[in-house]
Amino acid sequence: MAALLELKNVKKIYDMGRDIHVEALRGVSFSIEEGSYTAIMGHSGSGKSTLLQIMGCLDRVTSGEIVIKGTAVKDMNDFQLAKFRNRTIGFVFQSFNLIGNLTAIENVELPMIYAGVPRAERRKRAMELLKLVGLEEPEERAYHRPNQLSGGQQQRVAIARALANDPAVILADEPTGNLATNQWRRILDIFKRLNESGKTIIIVTHDPLVGQEATRIITLEDGEIIKDERIK
């Protein structure tokens, strides 16, 4: 399988000022194949979120190199990065992060607005995606605000939003962290289904139960990979 994403000796040092530096990533190298389902695990503070942000082009590396779909991230300016995130990466966050004054369907449409998709097409695709993530009676729920939806429903809307521009990879940071057990099962089912239909998925978690469906588990400790196992 072709490498979708490649990290070469990536380091990330947070400069806290007054000569205090936090080394969040101390030289991480690995590559992610297209269509894979990877879990990144590790204790709190091990650098998981930092790694995800860097893979998602939200932050720049201190040193090292990232290549996504053949493009070196460090060669891109802010504008290009925004466009790249828009088309190539779908984010799912722990706290859902839906925009509060937009309805569910408008949240799903948001990345498509940024991509310049025409209104009618946008609506149609957003509705399909809401159905895909199994929002019950989407015709009605679609027009609810996030605060009228349960946590599980919100996270499913967020997944639909992440899928909006058919990204190459879904990056999820503790997507089940704020959900009750019966709710996070559904979320993991969706990820599994998406992966089975070919979507590349990277999920960050500290919970082994959440990671169990991945085909590969990368374990971080203190900013370094201590284990990289393939399952099955």
Binding site: F79, A82, I99, P111, Y114
Partner: peptide, 16 residues
């Protein structure tokens, strides 16, 4: 601020 961060993650450019 958070909303701005989310929008940027979704691909909103700085200009937008």
């Amino acid at each position: 601020t958070k909303e701005i961060g989310v929008k940027m993650a979704m691909g909103a450019t700085r200009r937008r």
